[in-house]
Design a protein around this nucleic acid. Structure first.
Ligand code: ZN
Ligand code: ZN
Ligand code: ZN
Ligand code: ZN
Lengths: 161, 161
DNA sequence: TAGCACTCTGTTATAACGTAACGGCCACGC
DNA sequence: GCGTGGCCGTTACGTTATAACAGAGTGCTA
C-alpha cells in the first residue's frame, strides 16, 4: 500500500500519462474544468518528482505566454490541490504533482523529501498518524501533514544528483 | 509517553517555570548563552500554548524596547529552535515553545493544532512515522514534521475560545 | 595596556511567498 | 438579447524571511 514512487527508476512517461488521464477523468466526473492553463501547470509539475515553488511555476508559465502574475500561478495551484492533483509541501513552500492519482480523493499523504536532489516521494498514509495521541487528548484530527527530510537511495550512494 | 499537553487545563505557571529552568540548565551545560533577549523571547512564547508568528513576537519585543527589526526576532527564534526550546510549525509559519523541555535533545515531535482557538499541543513522536514507507524506498529519514489540524476538546464542545 | 577574536545585537535593504480586489472575457441558459 | 457564473489579467499590497554590514561587549593574550 505504500509504494513511495519517485526515487526508484521507473517509466516516468507512464507516470505523466496516467496522472493526466486521471485528472481529466476526475474533472469530467466532478464537473470541474481542466483548462489549458491548469492542465499545463499540472504537466509542468509532473515533469519531475520535485517540488516547484509557485514563482518557479509562474516563470515556466510565463515563458509560454500563459500568464506572468502571481495570482495566475496561485489560482492554478489552488485548483490542482483542491482537486487532489497536486499537494503542497509545507516545509518547502512548494508544490508537487500527486503520485497517486488513482487513490481516494483527498487521500492522506506523507512525503519523503531528499535534501540533496530535491525529489519528493509520496507515500499513502495508511493510518492517521497521531491517532493514539490525538485520542488521548480528545483531539479531532481533520487533516495531517507528514513530511520527512532526508536522503534518497541515490543520494546516499554518492550519486549527488 | 504521549501526553500532548496544551489543551487540558493544567498548572501553566509550572509549565513556564519548568521550561525556563530546563532552558537555563541546558544552556549552562552546552555553553550556550540564554541572553536577556533570547530569554524574553522564550518567555513570550511560553505565555500561551499558541504558535506565534515571528512578526508577532517582534511586536511584543519591540513594545519592551528589545528590538524592532525582523532579524532580531528571527535570530532569537533560530537560537531557540536550534537549542530545542521552541519548534517551528510549518503549516502556520509560526513558532511555539517546546512543551517537553525534559525530553531528549532534538526529540521528534508531532503537533495537534486547533483551527479554532489556535492552541498547539505537542506529542512526543514515539516512533518515526513513515518508518515502513521510508525503508521500502531506501530513504534515510533525518527529521520529520508531523502536524495535524483539527479541533481541540474545548472547541468541539462549543466553547469557541 | 593594547590588540585581537568571538559572539551578540542594531540596522538597512531586499528577497521570497502569498492574497485582496476589480475588471474583462466568454460560454451557457433563459 | 441578457443575465449569470466561472476563469483569467492586472494592480497593488501584505506577510514571511534573509543577506550583509556596522557597532558593542567580553575575555584572552602578549
Ligand atoms: Zn515518475
Ligand atoms: Zn536524492
Ligand atoms: Zn502550560
Ligand atoms: Zn481549540
Amino acid at each position: 500500500m505504500s509504494d513511495p514512487t519517485g526515487f526508484a527508476p521507473h517509466d516516468h512517461h507512464a507516470c505523466v500519462s496516467t496522472a493526466l488521464a486521471a485528472a481529466e477523468a476526475a474533472c469530467a466526473e466532478r464537473g470541474a474544468r481542466l483548462t489549458p492553463l491548469r492542465r499545463r501547470a499540472l504537466e509542468i509539475l509532473l515533469e519531475s518528482h520535485k517540488a516547484l515553488g509557485a514563482y518557479d511555476l509562474l516563470e515556466r508559465l510565463a515563458a509560454e505566454g500563459l500568464g506572468d502574475k502571481p495570482p495566475v500561478a496561485y489560482r492554478a495551484l489552488n485548483f490542482l490541490t483542491e482537486q487532489g492533483f497536486a499537494h503542497r509541501i509545507e516545509r518547502l513552500n512548494a508544490y508537487v504533482a500527486c503520485s497517486h492519482p488513482d487513490a481516494a480523493e483527498g487521500h492522506g499523504a506523507a512525503f519523503l523529501i531528499c535534501r540533496d536532489c530535491g525529489r519528493v516521494a509520496e507515500a499513502l498514509a495508511d493510518k492517521a498518524p497521531l491517532g493514539a495521541d490525538a485520542q488521548d487528548a480528545g483531539f479531532t484530527v481533520e487533516d495531517a501533514v507528514v513530511e520527512a527530510r532526508g536522503l534518497c537511495p541515490q543520494c546516499q550512494s554518492g550519486a549527488g544528483a
